[in-house]
Simulated scan of single mutants.
Amino acid sequence: MRILITGASGQLGLELSSVLKGELIKTFNTREVQGGYRLDLENFSQLEDFIIKKRPDVIINTASMTDVDKCDVERERAYKINAEAVKHIVRASRVIEAYLIHISTDYVFDGQKGLYKEEDLPNPVNYYGLTKLLGETYALTYDDSLVIRTSGVFRHKGFPLYVYKTLREGKEVNAFKGYYSPISARKLAETVAELIGFRKTGIIHIAGERISRFELAIKIKEMFNLPSEVREVDEVKGWIAKRPFDSSLDISKSKKLLSTDFYSIEENLKYMVI
Protein backbone atom coordinates (compact mmCIF):
# COMPACT_ATOMS: atom_id res chain seq x y z
CA MET A 1 0.00 0.00 0.00
CA ARG A 2 1.31 3.42 -0.98
CA ILE A 3 0.58 6.04 1.69
CA LEU A 4 1.18 9.77 1.22
CA ILE A 5 1.76 11.76 4.44
CA THR A 6 1.60 15.53 4.04
CA GLY A 7 3.31 17.46 6.84
CA ALA A 8 5.64 14.53 7.61
CA SER A 9 7.96 16.76 9.67
CA GLY A 10 5.19 17.65 12.13
CA GLN A 11 4.51 15.83 15.39
CA LEU A 12 1.85 13.51 13.97
CA GLY A 13 3.72 13.10 10.69
CA LEU A 14 6.85 11.90 12.49
CA GLU A 15 4.91 9.31 14.48
CA LEU A 16 2.97 8.12 11.42
CA SER A 17 6.29 7.58 9.64
CA SER A 18 7.37 5.14 12.36
CA VAL A 19 3.99 3.43 12.91
CA LEU A 20 2.64 2.87 9.39
CA LYS A 21 3.47 -0.16 7.25
CA GLY A 22 3.82 0.04 3.50
CA GLU A 23 5.48 2.37 1.01
CA LEU A 24 5.48 5.83 2.57
CA ILE A 25 5.62 9.01 0.49
CA LYS A 26 6.54 11.79 2.93
CA THR A 27 6.28 15.50 2.17
CA PHE A 28 7.47 18.54 4.09
CA ASN A 29 7.66 22.28 3.56
CA THR A 30 10.24 23.90 5.88
CA ARG A 31 11.72 21.21 8.18
CA GLU A 32 13.34 18.55 6.00
CA VAL A 33 12.46 14.87 6.43
CA GLN A 34 14.87 12.12 5.41
CA GLY A 35 13.68 10.56 2.18
CA GLY A 36 10.91 13.11 1.90
CA TYR A 37 9.83 15.57 -0.79
CA ARG A 38 9.53 19.31 -0.37
CA LEU A 39 5.96 20.32 -1.20
CA ASP A 40 4.43 23.78 -0.88
CA LEU A 41 0.72 23.41 -0.11
CA GLU A 42 0.15 26.98 -1.27
CA ASN A 43 1.27 26.01 -4.79
CA PHE A 44 -1.96 24.29 -5.76
CA SER A 45 -1.00 23.15 -9.25
CA GLN A 46 2.22 21.60 -7.91
CA LEU A 47 0.25 19.95 -5.10
CA GLU A 48 -2.26 18.31 -7.46
CA ASP A 49 0.45 17.31 -9.93
CA PHE A 50 2.54 15.67 -7.19
CA ILE A 51 -0.39 13.60 -5.89
CA ILE A 52 -1.49 12.45 -9.34
CA LYS A 53 2.05 11.45 -10.35
CA LYS A 54 2.75 9.55 -7.11
CA ARG A 55 -0.68 7.83 -7.16
CA PRO A 56 -0.91 6.88 -3.47
CA ASP A 57 -3.64 4.49 -2.31
CA VAL A 58 -4.11 6.51 0.89
CA ILE A 59 -3.50 10.22 1.60
CA ILE A 60 -3.16 11.40 5.20
CA ASN A 61 -3.29 15.19 5.35
CA THR A 62 -1.63 16.23 8.60
CA ALA A 63 -0.23 19.48 7.18
CA SER A 64 -1.75 22.54 8.80
CA MET A 65 -1.05 26.04 10.08
CA THR A 66 -1.73 25.35 13.76
CA ASP A 67 -0.45 28.50 15.47
CA VAL A 68 -3.81 29.93 16.60
CA ASP A 69 -2.58 33.51 17.01
CA LYS A 70 -0.57 33.49 13.77
CA CYS A 71 -3.69 32.33 11.90
CA ASP A 72 -5.52 35.38 13.23
CA VAL A 73 -2.76 37.65 11.93
CA GLU A 74 -1.79 35.88 8.67
CA ARG A 75 -5.32 35.13 7.55
CA GLU A 76 -4.72 34.73 3.83
CA ARG A 77 -1.98 32.15 4.41
CA ALA A 78 -4.03 30.32 7.04
CA TYR A 79 -6.94 30.05 4.62
CA LYS A 80 -4.72 28.75 1.81
CA ILE A 81 -3.07 26.03 3.92
CA ASN A 82 -5.93 24.95 6.19
CA ALA A 83 -8.80 25.22 3.73
CA GLU A 84 -8.02 25.86 0.09
CA ALA A 85 -5.21 23.28 -0.12
CA VAL A 86 -7.68 20.62 1.06
CA LYS A 87 -9.91 21.41 -1.92
CA HIS A 88 -7.01 20.65 -4.25
CA ILE A 89 -6.03 17.49 -2.37
CA VAL A 90 -9.62 16.33 -2.86
CA ARG A 91 -9.50 17.14 -6.58
CA ALA A 92 -6.39 14.99 -7.01
CA SER A 93 -7.78 12.24 -4.76
CA ARG A 94 -10.81 11.93 -7.01
CA VAL A 95 -8.63 11.48 -10.09
CA ILE A 96 -6.59 8.61 -8.60
CA GLU A 97 -9.41 7.27 -6.36
CA ALA A 98 -7.30 7.51 -3.19
CA TYR A 99 -8.71 7.17 0.32
CA LEU A 100 -8.30 10.52 2.11
CA ILE A 101 -7.84 11.00 5.85
CA HIS A 102 -7.92 14.66 6.85
CA ILE A 103 -6.86 15.78 10.34
CA SER A 104 -8.99 18.50 11.92
CA THR A 105 -9.41 20.04 15.36
CA ASP A 106 -11.64 20.55 18.40
CA TYR A 107 -11.34 24.30 17.71
CA VAL A 108 -14.16 24.07 15.17
CA PHE A 109 -16.41 24.31 18.28
CA ASP A 110 -17.12 27.40 20.40
CA GLY A 111 -16.39 25.74 23.76
CA GLN A 112 -19.72 26.60 25.35
CA LYS A 113 -20.60 23.06 26.45
CA GLY A 114 -17.70 20.60 25.90
CA LEU A 115 -17.71 16.87 25.15
CA TYR A 116 -18.78 17.60 21.59
CA LYS A 117 -20.16 14.75 19.50
CA GLU A 118 -19.39 14.27 15.82
CA GLU A 119 -22.85 15.52 14.84
CA ASP A 120 -22.77 18.68 17.00
CA LEU A 121 -22.93 21.96 15.12
CA PRO A 122 -19.51 23.64 14.76
CA ASN A 123 -19.19 27.32 15.64
CA PRO A 124 -15.53 28.43 15.71
CA VAL A 125 -14.54 31.46 17.81
CA ASN A 126 -11.22 32.17 16.07
CA TYR A 127 -9.87 32.23 12.53
CA TYR A 128 -7.84 29.04 12.97
CA GLY A 129 -11.02 27.16 13.84
CA LEU A 130 -12.86 28.73 10.91
CA THR A 131 -10.20 27.71 8.37
CA LYS A 132 -10.09 24.18 9.77
CA LEU A 133 -13.88 23.95 9.52
CA LEU A 134 -13.69 25.05 5.88
CA GLY A 135 -11.01 22.39 5.32
CA GLU A 136 -13.35 19.78 6.79
CA THR A 137 -16.12 20.94 4.47
CA TYR A 138 -13.90 20.54 1.41
CA ALA A 139 -12.73 17.09 2.56
CA LEU A 140 -16.29 15.88 3.10
CA THR A 141 -17.29 16.75 -0.47
CA TYR A 142 -15.34 13.59 -1.38
CA ASP A 143 -17.21 10.35 -0.69
CA ASP A 144 -14.07 8.38 0.19
CA SER A 145 -12.80 10.67 2.94
CA LEU A 146 -12.57 10.57 6.72
CA VAL A 147 -12.21 13.69 8.88
CA ILE A 148 -10.51 13.02 12.21
CA ARG A 149 -11.08 15.74 14.80
CA THR A 150 -8.48 15.71 17.53
CA SER A 151 -7.31 17.93 20.40
CA GLY A 152 -4.07 19.24 21.90
CA VAL A 153 -1.64 16.94 20.07
CA PHE A 154 1.77 16.75 21.74
CA ARG A 155 5.09 15.01 21.25
CA HIS A 156 8.28 17.08 21.51
CA LYS A 157 6.22 20.26 21.90
CA GLY A 158 2.76 21.25 23.10
CA PHE A 159 1.28 22.21 26.46
CA PRO A 160 2.42 19.12 28.43
CA LEU A 161 6.01 19.67 27.28
CA TYR A 162 5.81 23.36 28.19
CA VAL A 163 4.62 22.41 31.69
CA TYR A 164 7.33 19.80 32.17
CA LYS A 165 10.19 22.00 30.99
CA THR A 166 9.00 25.12 32.82
CA LEU A 167 8.52 23.33 36.15
CA ARG A 168 11.83 21.50 35.77
CA GLU A 169 13.55 24.89 35.42
CA GLY A 170 11.94 25.97 38.71
CA LYS A 171 9.59 28.47 37.09
CA GLU A 172 5.89 28.93 37.77
CA VAL A 173 3.35 27.69 35.20
CA ASN A 174 0.21 29.69 34.41
CA ALA A 175 -2.40 27.18 33.23
CA PHE A 176 -5.61 28.22 31.46
CA LYS A 177 -8.59 26.87 33.40
CA GLY A 178 -10.39 25.74 30.24
CA TYR A 179 -10.89 22.11 29.21
CA TYR A 180 -9.74 20.07 26.22
CA SER A 181 -8.85 16.45 25.29
CA PRO A 182 -5.06 16.20 24.80
CA ILE A 183 -3.55 13.23 22.98
CA SER A 184 0.02 12.23 22.21
CA ALA A 185 1.08 12.15 18.57
CA ARG A 186 2.06 8.47 19.02
CA LYS A 187 -1.38 7.34 20.20
CA LEU A 188 -3.08 9.40 17.49
CA ALA A 189 -0.80 7.82 14.86
CA GLU A 190 -1.67 4.33 16.13
CA THR A 191 -5.39 5.05 15.76
CA VAL A 192 -4.87 6.38 12.22
CA ALA A 193 -3.04 3.16 11.32
CA GLU A 194 -5.95 1.13 12.67
CA LEU A 195 -8.56 3.30 10.92
CA ILE A 196 -6.95 2.80 7.50
CA GLY A 197 -7.99 -0.85 7.71
CA PHE A 198 -11.63 0.08 8.35
CA ARG A 199 -11.72 2.65 5.51
CA LYS A 200 -14.45 4.53 7.34
CA THR A 201 -15.82 7.79 5.97
CA GLY A 202 -17.44 10.88 7.50
CA ILE A 203 -16.27 12.37 10.81
CA ILE A 204 -14.78 10.69 13.88
CA HIS A 205 -13.37 12.14 17.11
CA ILE A 206 -10.00 10.77 18.25
CA ALA A 207 -8.69 12.48 21.40
CA GLY A 208 -7.78 11.97 25.03
CA GLU A 209 -9.92 12.23 28.13
CA ARG A 210 -11.47 15.59 29.04
CA ILE A 211 -9.22 17.49 31.44
CA SER A 212 -8.49 21.13 32.29
CA ARG A 213 -5.02 22.45 31.52
CA PHE A 214 -4.66 23.25 35.22
CA GLU A 215 -5.49 19.66 36.22
CA LEU A 216 -3.12 18.33 33.57
CA ALA A 217 -0.29 20.58 34.77
CA ILE A 218 -0.81 19.36 38.35
CA LYS A 219 -0.74 15.73 37.13
CA ILE A 220 2.56 16.32 35.30
CA LYS A 221 4.04 18.08 38.34
CA GLU A 222 3.14 15.13 40.57
CA MET A 223 4.10 12.43 38.05
CA PHE A 224 7.63 13.78 37.61
CA ASN A 225 7.98 15.17 41.15
CA LEU A 226 8.80 18.62 39.77
CA PRO A 227 9.48 21.79 41.81
CA SER A 228 7.74 25.16 41.47
CA GLU A 229 4.03 25.89 41.34
CA VAL A 230 1.08 25.77 38.95
CA ARG A 231 -1.39 28.65 38.92
CA GLU A 232 -4.84 28.59 37.31
CA VAL A 233 -5.62 31.64 35.15
CA ASP A 234 -8.61 32.87 33.12
CA GLU A 235 -6.46 33.75 30.12
CA VAL A 236 -2.82 33.63 29.10
CA LYS A 237 -0.97 36.91 28.65
CA GLY A 238 -0.05 37.55 25.03
CA TRP A 239 -2.91 35.67 23.39
CA ILE A 240 -4.32 37.40 20.31
CA ALA A 241 -7.12 35.03 19.30
CA LYS A 242 -9.98 33.95 21.52
CA ARG A 243 -9.90 30.33 22.76
CA PRO A 244 -12.91 28.07 23.36
CA PHE A 245 -13.34 27.45 27.11
CA ASP A 246 -14.27 23.76 26.82
CA SER A 247 -13.47 22.20 23.45
CA SER A 248 -13.29 18.63 24.79
CA LEU A 249 -14.49 15.91 22.43
CA ASP A 250 -16.88 13.03 22.98
CA ILE A 251 -14.89 9.93 21.94
CA SER A 252 -17.47 7.25 22.70
CA LYS A 253 -17.80 6.21 19.03
CA SER A 254 -14.07 5.77 18.49
CA LYS A 255 -13.62 3.92 21.82
CA LYS A 256 -16.15 1.31 20.64
CA LEU A 257 -14.51 1.00 17.23
CA LEU A 258 -10.79 0.91 18.08
CA SER A 259 -8.73 -1.56 20.11
CA THR A 260 -6.01 1.01 20.98
CA ASP A 261 -6.05 2.78 24.37
CA PHE A 262 -5.65 6.23 22.88
CA TYR A 263 -7.57 8.13 25.55
CA SER A 264 -6.17 7.67 29.09
CA ILE A 265 -4.06 10.62 30.28
CA GLU A 266 -1.45 8.34 31.89
CA GLU A 267 -0.99 6.32 28.70
CA ASN A 268 -0.60 9.46 26.57
CA LEU A 269 1.90 11.12 28.91
CA LYS A 270 4.23 8.13 28.44
CA TYR A 271 4.90 9.39 24.91
CA MET A 272 6.12 12.90 25.70
CA VAL A 273 9.52 13.29 24.07
CA ILE A 274 11.45 15.01 26.89
Score class of each variant (00 low, 15 high):
residue 272 M to K: 00
residue 82 N to I: 07
residue 7 G to T: 02
residue 162 Y to Q: 07
residue 180 Y to P: 04
residue 145 S to L: 05
residue 111 G to F: 02
residue 234 D to G: 14
residue 19 V to L: 00
residue 72 D to Q: 15
residue 259 S to F: 10
residue 192 V to G: 09
residue 19 V to D: 01
residue 159 F to S: 03
residue 170 G to V: 14
residue 226 L to Q: 10
residue 28 F to P: 11
residue 48 E to I: 15
residue 74 E to N: 12
residue 48 E to P: 15
residue 220 I to E: 05
residue 272 M to C: 08
residue 112 Q to T: 14
residue 184 S to G: 10
residue 246 D to R: 02
residue 185 A to D: 01
residue 92 A to P: 10
residue 185 A to M: 02
residue 190 E to Q: 06
residue 177 K to W: 10
residue 261 D to A: 04
residue 269 L to S: 08
residue 213 R to C: 09
residue 74 E to Y: 13
residue 114 G to P: 05
residue 127 Y to W: 14
residue 110 D to H: 12
residue 195 L to V: 02
residue 3 I to H: 04
residue 258 L to R: 13
residue 237 K to Q: 10
residue 182 P to S: 02
residue 155 R to Y: 01
residue 120 D to H: 00
residue 170 G to Q: 08
residue 208 G to V: 05
residue 167 L to H: 03
residue 67 D to Q: 09
residue 170 G to A: 12
residue 6 T to P: 03
residue 165 K to A: 06
residue 216 L to A: 07
residue 192 V to E: 07
residue 201 T to A: 03
residue 211 I to E: 03
residue 263 Y to M: 00
residue 117 K to D: 06
residue 78 A to K: 13
residue 142 Y to A: 01
residue 140 L to T: 01
residue 201 T to S: 00
residue 88 H to Q: 12
residue 207 A to V: 00
residue 262 F to D: 04
residue 252 S to K: 09
residue 180 Y to H: 09
residue 72 D to C: 14
residue 129 G to S: 11
residue 136 E to T: 05
residue 203 I to A: 00
residue 126 N to R: 12
residue 200 K to A: 03
residue 40 D to T: 12
residue 145 S to Y: 01
residue 12 L to A: 00
residue 247 S to E: 00
residue 71 C to E: 13
residue 202 G to A: 03
residue 191 T to M: 10
residue 268 N to W: 03
residue 15 E to G: 06
residue 30 T to P: 07
residue 59 I to T: 04
residue 57 D to L: 07
residue 205 H to T: 01
residue 240 I to H: 13
residue 25 I to P: 13
residue 86 V to D: 03
residue 39 L to I: 01
residue 262 F to K: 05
residue 20 L to D: 03
residue 94 R to Q: 11
residue 79 Y to K: 11
residue 107 Y to S: 11
residue 189 A to T: 01
residue 262 F to Y: 06
residue 271 Y to K: 03
residue 9 S to V: 02
residue 20 L to Y: 02
residue 93 S to Q: 02
residue 218 I to H: 06
residue 124 P to V: 12
residue 133 L to Y: 12
residue 172 E to R: 11
residue 211 I to Y: 04
residue 58 V to Y: 01
residue 262 F to E: 10
residue 3 I to C: 06
residue 68 V to A: 11
residue 273 V to E: 13
residue 199 R to Y: 05
residue 18 S to E: 10
residue 117 K to A: 07
residue 87 K to N: 14
residue 92 A to Y: 03
residue 32 E to H: 10
residue 231 R to G: 08
residue 26 K to E: 12
residue 177 K to G: 13
residue 200 K to P: 04
residue 229 E to D: 14
residue 68 V to Y: 10
residue 78 A to P: 14
residue 250 D to W: 02
residue 21 K to F: 01
residue 31 R to Y: 15
residue 8 A to D: 09
residue 17 S to C: 05
residue 40 D to N: 15
residue 93 S to A: 15
residue 38 R to W: 07
residue 93 S to N: 01
residue 58 V to R: 03
residue 170 G to T: 11
residue 62 T to H: 08
residue 69 D to L: 05
residue 8 A to G: 10
residue 110 D to F: 11
residue 39 L to D: 07
residue 260 T to R: 12
residue 239 W to V: 13
residue 235 E to L: 11
residue 59 I to Q: 03
residue 243 R to I: 13
residue 92 A to C: 05
residue 163 V to N: 05
residue 61 N to D: 14
residue 123 N to E: 13
residue 163 V to M: 07
residue 68 V to H: 08
residue 184 S to F: 06
residue 237 K to N: 12
residue 29 N to G: 06
residue 60 I to L: 06
